[in-house]
Nucleic acid binder design. Structure first.
Ligand SMILES: [Mn+2]
Ligand SMILES: [Mn+2]
Ligand SMILES: [Zn+2]
Ligand SMILES: [Zn+2]
Lengths: 121, 121
DNA sequence: CTAGTAATAGGAATAATTACTGTTTATTTT
DNA sequence: AAAATAAACAGTAATTATTCCTATTACTAG
C-alpha cells in the first residue's frame, strides 16, 4: 500500500471521533481539508484501512459506520437518538461454547444492543 | 390491519423457509403465485408484518433479511457461504448488567457471530 | 348501491455503495 | 535527476436496496 495524502486524512478523521461516523460524515470532514476529494476515494480507502486493520467497519442497520477502535468491543445502540455507545463484553466463553456446540469457528462477534440510553429517562 | 391476499402470501413465504430470506428472494417466490405483485408491496408488507410481530427483520451487513422465528435468538454467520444459523443465547444476564452499568434500557439484542461453519473444514 | 378508506401496482426517487475511465502522483529504475 | 511503472485519484456512471408517490382497485359500513 503506497502512501497517500488522502488516505492519511481519512484515517485521521476516523481516529478523531468516538461517534462511529458514516462515510458521508467522513467525506464532509475530509473535504474541508481536501476539497477535491471524491466519495469514491473515501469508500475505497475506508475499505483498505479496514483490511489493513487501522480501523473497523461496523454495520448500523443498513449503513456502514467506521470505528477507530479496533479492539474487540460491542455497541449499545439507542433507538431514540441512534447513538452507538462502546461496550466491552467478554466473548471468549461464547466463542468456546459455540465451537463445541455448533462446530462453528467464530472469528468475530458483532453485538448490538438496542434500547434507550440515559438521555431519555 | 385489513386482510390482504398479498400479505398472506408474503407471510407464508417467510414462514416457509429457515434461510432468512431477503426482500428480493421473497419477491421472486411470491411472484410465482401472484405475478402482478410489486416490490413496493413486498417491502410495505414486510414492514407491517414486522410491526405486528408476525416476523422479524434482521440486518445482515447492509441488507435486510426476514425471519419467521420471532423468539429471541441470534445468528451465526458463516463468512464463507453467508449462511445464517439460528442460535440461542440467554441475554437476560446481559440486559441486567447493562442496565446497572450503563443506565441503558435494553429492549433488543442483535448478535451476529462471524466465522466459518462446519461445511468448510 | 354508494361513499369512504385501506391496500395495491407500477414506477419514480433516494440513499448507499461500487465500478469505470482517463489523469495524476508516489515510488522504482535508469 | 529524468523516465518508467504502477498505484491512487477525481469525476462520473452504474448498481443495489429501499422508500415514496399516484392513480387505481377492492373491502366494508351505512
Ligand atoms: Mn465502537
Ligand atoms: Mn433466525
Ligand atoms: Zn439516546
Ligand atoms: Zn458456511
Amino acid at each position: 500500500m503506497r502512501f497517500s495524502h488522502q488516505r492519511e486524512l481519512i484515517k485521521k478523521v476516523v481516529h478523531s471521533t468516538n461517534s462511529h461516523p458514516t462515510a458521508d460524515w467522513i467525506y464532509a470532514q475530509v473535504r474541508s481539508a481536501s476539497p477535491k476529494i471524491s466519495l469514491g476515494t473515501i469508500y475505497r480507502n475506508l475499505k483498505q484501512l479496514t483490511e489493513e486493520g487501522f480501523i473497523r467497519t461496523i454495520y448500523d442497520g443498513n449503513v456502514a459506520r467506521y470505528d477507530w477502535n479496533i479492539n474487540s468491543h460491542h455497541h449499545l445502540k439507542c433507538m431514540e437518538c441512534g447513538d452507538l455507545i462502546d461496550i466491552q463484553l467478554s466473548n471468549e466463553d461464547m466463542t468456546k461454547s459455540i465451537r463445541k456446540e455448533f462446530d462453528f469457528e467464530v472469528s468475530d462477534v458483532e453485538i448490538t444492543l438496542l434500547g434507550k440510553c440515559n438521555k431519555h429517562n
